[in-house]
Simulated assay, not measured.
Amino acid sequence: MYRKYFKRLIDIILSGMGLIVLSWLFLILIIAIKVTSPGPILFKQKRIGKDRQNFQIYKFRSMRIDTPDVPTHLLENPDQWITSIGKILRKSSLDELPQLINIFKGDMSIIGPRPALWSQNNLADERDKYGANTILPGLTGLAQISGRDELSILTKSKLDGKYVENITFLGDFKLFFGTFVSVLSADGVAEGANKKNSNEKK
């Protein structure tokens, strides 16, 4: 019942409330992004969603508009492309806030496997083995509090599969609050070409 009905209902309620309650923070971040660097406020990127259907994920832009169009982990020196406010956004994960829109729309869930880049077929193929592509990708998930960028593709996929097998309200509740601990400690965050497992760009 929770997986089939209540999980989506909770996603809609919490993401809607989040967009309203955090509107003041959105406004502050929008202004900060606009005054510190030229370019759009939001960064949009094609990601792999449920049943491997692509969708556009939203993030606050944290990198310069002239950044090479490659994943961050392939940049030799990503710091030179990250804006001043972008460093704060990325370290605090505040750049992920616009994904509340994705959750409200139904592209994502609050808890689930982090959506892979459209080009990460190796990760998507590995997730297929564990059924991790059969549910909505999440804002945060089991892999996010278990190492994030430091995890190998195989380990991420196994953790994602483990989550799919055990979706419960209590489990999601624990993962939700466990994410705050992970974010505050910046646990497992990686940037740059030497961090080969990172799947984030801009």
Rank of each mutant, 00 (worst) to 15 (best):
M1H: 13
K4T: 13
F6I: 05
K7W: 06
I12A: 09
S15G: 07
S15K: 02
S23Q: 01
W24M: 07
L25V: 15
L25K: 07
F26S: 14
L29G: 06
I30S: 14
V35N: 06
T36P: 14
T36E: 14
S37I: 00
I41Y: 04
K46C: 02
I48E: 02
K50P: 09
K50C: 13
R52P: 08
Q56C: 00
I57K: 13
I57M: 15
Y58Q: 02
D69H: 11
P71D: 07
H73W: 08
H73D: 03
L74T: 10
L75F: 08
N77T: 12
Q80A: 05
W81G: 06
W81C: 11
G86P: 11
K87D: 08
I88P: 04
L94M: 13
L100N: 05
I101C: 13
N102S: 05
I103F: 02
G106T: 03
G106H: 04
S109Y: 04
S109D: 05
I111P: 00
R114F: 01
S119D: 12
S119K: 09
N122W: 04
L123N: 06
R127H: 13
D128T: 09
D128Q: 08
A132T: 11
I135V: 15
P137Q: 06
L139P: 00
G141L: 09
Q144G: 00
I145S: 01
D149P: 01
E150Q: 13
I153H: 11
I153V: 15
L154Y: 07
T155H: 14
K158S: 11
L159K: 04
D160Y: 09
K162M: 08
E165G: 00
G171E: 14
D172Y: 03
T179R: 00
S182V: 10
K196G: 13
N197R: 07
